[in-house]
Every structure is written in C-alpha cells, then in structure tokens.
Design a protein around this nucleic acid. Structure first.
Length: 313
DNA sequence: AAGACGAAAGTGGTTGA
DNA sequence: TCAACAACTTTCGTCTT
C-alpha cells in the first residue's frame, strides 16, 4: 500500500479542482488520473504523461533517469552517434603510419566495431521503447505499467521471441500483459485501436509470450473495470462500490465464469446506477464499455434474477 | 420519442477428439 | 486440424414510460 502512495505526488501544474476550487491535487500515475485531495473528484482521465522521456529497466537505472543533450534520431542505425575509423593506415596528412601506430589503429577499429555491434542489440530496444512511449502515452497508460512492459519486453528479446515477428506487435502485447499484471486491464480491442495490428496478431503475440516465458498473468476481472468505466459514466464512488459488491456476489455464486468481464462490469454498473438513483441508460453504458446493449441486457437479466435484486424506484 | 426488451441469425474464439 | 459449442453481436419488431 505504501508503494502506491509513493507513486502519488503533489500536482505542480497549478490546476484547480472544478468541484471545490481546491488546488490540492494528487497525481496518480498508476491510474493515469489526478484526484482532488479535498473532495475526491477525479479530474483527468487518460492524462498524458508529460514527464521527461526516459528508459529505465532496473531500479538503479530508474534513479538516474534524466535526459540531456540533443535528441538522437532513430532513423540512423546507430542514432548518428558512433564514430567511424577509416581503413587506410594513414594519418590526416596522408603519411603512412608506423608499425606501432598501425597496430594501435587496428585495435581501435576492432573495439569500435565491437561497440557498434553491442549497440545494435540496444537498437532494437531503442526502437521498441519509442514505440512503447507512443502507445502508452496515447492510451494514457502510466509509467509504472510501462516499466513493467519494458521488463517483459527485455525478456522477450532475451528469449529471441521477436525473431520473425514484428517488434511493434510484441511491444503492444507486452503493454497489454503489463496492464493485466497491474490489475488495470485494457481490453485487447482497445490496444488494437492504437496499434497497427489486428486483434488476431496481437493475441498471437500475447499467447507466445505467455507460453514461452512461462509467466502467469492474472486474467482480467470484471471488478478491475469498474473504476475506469464508472468514472467515464460519471458515477459516484458509492455507486461504483455497489457495482463491485454486485460482482463479488455474482462471483461467489459462480455466475461469472466464462462470461466476458467487460459485459459483466457493464451490467453491474447499470444495475448499481439504478439502485443508487444515478440511472444511466443501457445504451450509455454499452457505449462506454464497448459491448452491445444486448449483452448489457443479458447480463443484467441474469444478475437480477440470480441475486434477487429488486430495482425499486 | 426514447428506452427497454427479446427473438433470430451471424460471427469469432475456445475446446476436445 | 477440424467440428461442436457457448458467448457475443447485429438487426429488427414490439412493448413501456
């Protein structure tokens, strides 16, 4: 829990809560939101990460993350940074080098070449990280999750899983899994919208990672979706809690297995909105959650029937 | 007029032989 | 690898508020 609190820091942008006028805003990068510490209003959803661009894969690197100097370009294979050492054994005046100097230049060339090869391994990573940055900031995914995704992707490379597959697709898959690891799942369809790959390809990459790396990633739970979609629907925290309670009861009764978690979340939000007097229509809920009204209806019908929920007025 | 409801047919993904 | 299967979607007509 204290870890979560560390991720929150005081807002520095001088934003004011539109609800109560307080300037005490807390940024929560994990959820991609700003929260008013006075009244609890969630202010930014899908906040774009405006922090410095950085790449950190370990805790140590994280401490020194900062970015200085001119931007490098990914268009050149070595980002235009490496030095080339000519093959002619002459100095800048065109004079022949001594045997001793020739041997020195040979060694320098060798090491220089080796360092370029070494950096070519990083090249993959550099490209991958820029794609991840793009995807994550467009989707409002927090740095925290990005870091998890970066660690995952490192393992993907170490195991040679990118061979024959697109780097960008593997990046998208890593992000998808990282979101699930943080219990803030994004449906694959959502990733699909921001990626140039279809669900089929992304799903294939996800499966590859899961099986080859032998890692266990929790499946998306319906309750994980409640805060996000609840906020999008403008539902109060109380209503969201009611929706979560409904889902927990449903799970205990075994009504949730095999059902699309987003559909369940949609139905629970719909029911909770009626119970708490903040009624939303089926079409509103279905639009936000990205399932059809029919699915909302079917889940809704099952839930109120099997949990004996009375919708009063 | 808008929202809710449900039937029927179609679609994509999972599972077990 | 293929067929069966359950869940979900699309479409559309009817009922309710």
């Amino acid at each position: 829990m204290s870890k979560v609190l560390e991720k929150k820091d005081k807002n520095q942008l001088g934003l004011v809560c539109p609800e109560c006028g307080s300037t005490e805003l807390i940024r929560d990068y994990t959820r991609g939101e700003s929260i008013c510490s006075n009244c609890g209003l969630v202010i930014h959803e899908h906040m774009v990460d405006s922090g410095p661009e950085w790449r950190a894969f370990t805790a140590e690197e994280k401490n020194q993350r900062s970015r200085v100097g001119a931007p490098t370009t990914f268009r050149m294979p070595d980002k235009g940074l490496s030095t080339m050492i000519g093959k002619q054994n002459t100095d800048s005046f065109g004079k022949k080098l001594s045997a001793k100097k020739r041997r020195l230049m040979y060694r320098l060339r060798k090491w220089n070449f080796r360092s370029i090869i070494h950096s070519s391994k990083r090249r993959n990573l550099a490209h991958a990280m820029s794609e991840m940055q793009r995807l994550a900031s467009q989707m409002g995914i927090s740095r925290d999750i990005m870091e998890t995704a970066a660690v995952l992707y490192r393992k993907v490379i170490e195991n040679g899983l990118t061979r024959g597959r697109s780097i960008d697709a593997m990046i998208a898959a890593s992000l998808y899994l990282a979101c699930r690891l943080h219990n803030l799942p994004r449906p694959l369809d959502e990733i699909e919208q921001y990626s140039r790959f279809d669900r089929k390809e992304l799903g294939y990459c996800v499966r590859t990672i899961l099986s080859k790396l032998r890692i266990k990633v929790p499946r998306a739970k319906a309750t994980d979706f409640i805060p996000r979609f609840g906020n999008e629907l403008g539902l109060s925290a109380k209503t969201q809690r009611t929706a979560i309670k409904i889902l927990e009861q449903a799970r205990e009764k075994g009504l949730t297995s095999g059902k699309d978690p987003t559909g369940l979340a949609a139905a629970a939000l719909y029911i909770a909105s009626m119970l708490e007097g903040e009624r939303r229509t089926q079409s509103e809920v279905s639009r936000v959650v990205a399932v059809t009204e029919v699915t909302v209806r079917n889940r809704y019908r099952e839930l109120i029937r099997d949990l004996n929920i009375q919708i009063g007025r």
